[in-house]
């Protein structure tokens, strides 16, 4: 089991807002293996960002609470660590890059000052060592003129360059796991291609695992080894990337793929999933996707489906229940016979 860098088991997170509580994460399971890229896909509000923040220990302390479950990082449960212990981990062994390269850097400090922070926190190094280290990392992420950029301020850099700086910040302490939360959503396509290329490269070079959170299936296709599909706070499907794109089992995943314009004939009506994601307050018994699912039957509204395994392909859908399959086949047969 030691090849799993990160394991999230049955994670449940509750948010409090005044007297109202909501539970955006309801039983999430997944793991990240050494050296692999795991994609977490889902639409806004599916809980993918909350999950990643909980791994980083960055959930707001006052308003959120991990109700149950564990987060194992190198087989150590980190879900209930104290802030002080977390600080040793964060930026050192686990690091994170965010969506907005414009706002994640402090405008009043130079790049060098911001990048030296984690080194001063976690490593014992002299000033010149720190500087040399930073320049080396800046070069590694493909920034030209690293010696000058180190003394420049964030506003002097373009969006793509800032995201490179953020990546170098995340790389500084040679983390075992990097979490990238929509790292290219705010960037243009040509810059996105550069950054994705860079991420692939540094992942191999630094022998780390990458957890890539995105809403964009094509980014997943491009980058990932394995994929977790989230919907309304649950993992609905998990599979190896080729398997997922070839044979998506959950109707939600199928719908997502079919609704991409590139998977439809030009000018034709796009496939679309009816309705909208339910709000956390509207989720009751049954499958979370049942109200939008074209294949839903009575059982879907009554009982929450467990995870059905087909090899390493896991999906939470009653259609994958061997018992249900048998019944449906029988029905089909009887229809054909009559």
């Amino acid at each position: 089991m030691s090849d799993k860098v990160l394991q999230v088991n049955d994670l449940r997170i509750r948010f409090r807002n005044g007297k109202e509580t909501s539970q955006p994460i309801r039983g999430v399971n997944f793991h990240v293996k050494k050296g692999e890229t795991l994609g977490i896909v889902g639409e806004s509000g599916c809980g993918k960002s909350v999950t990643s923040l909980s791994v980083m220990g960055l959930l707001p302390i006052k308003t959120s609470e991990i109700v149950s479950g564990e987060i194992l990082f190198n087989n150590r449960d980190i879900s209930r660590l104290k802030e002080k212990e977390y600080r040793k981990l964060r930026g050192n062994e686990i690091s994170m890059i965010f969506q907005e390269p414009m706002t994640s850097l402090n405008p009043v400090f130079t790049i060098g000052e911001q990048l030296s922070e984690p080194l001063r926190q976690h490593k014992k190094m002299s000033k010149s060592e720190i500087r040399n280290n930073i320049i080396a990392v800046l070069k590694q992420v493909g920034l030209p003129r690293a010696e000058q950029i180190i003394d420049e301020y964030p506003h002097q850099l373009s969006g793509g360059m800032r995201q490179r700086v953020m990546i170098s910040l995340a790389l500084l302490c040679h983390p075992k796991l990097m979490i990238a939360d929509e790292p290219t959503t705010a960037l243009d396509v040509t810059i996105q291609a550069q950054i994705l290329e860079l991420l692939k490269e540094i992942k191999v070079k630094n022998e780390m695992s990458l957890m890539l959170i995105t809403h964009d299936l094509s980014v997943v296709a491009e980058m990932c080894d394995r994929v977790v599909v989230m919907y309304a706070g649950e993992v609905v499907e998990e599979a190896e990337v080729n398997e997922l794109f070839d044979r998506p089992l959950h109707p939600y995943t199928q719908g997502l793929m079919k609704s991409l314009p590139s998977n439809n004939e030009r000018k034709s009506k796009l496939f679309s999933i009816d309705g909208q994601v339910p709000k956390p307050s509207e989720i009751g018994e049954g499958c979370v996707f049942a109200n939008r699912c074209p294949f839903a039957f009575e059982k879907c509204f009554a009982e929450t489906p467990p995870a059905f395994n087909r090899g390493k392909h896991i999906s939470k859908c009653w259609l994958q229940d061997p018992a249900v399959k048998e019944v449906m086949q029988n029905e089909e047969r009887s229809i054909v016979n009559s």
């Binding site: 009506k269 679309s272 509207e282 109200n291």
Partner: peptide, 12 residues
């Protein structure tokens, strides 16, 4: 014109 279904969120 094909009308997509409207969900029930409005009831809440």
């Amino acid at each position: 014109v094909n009308i997509p279904k409207v969900t029930h969120t409005t009831q809440s």
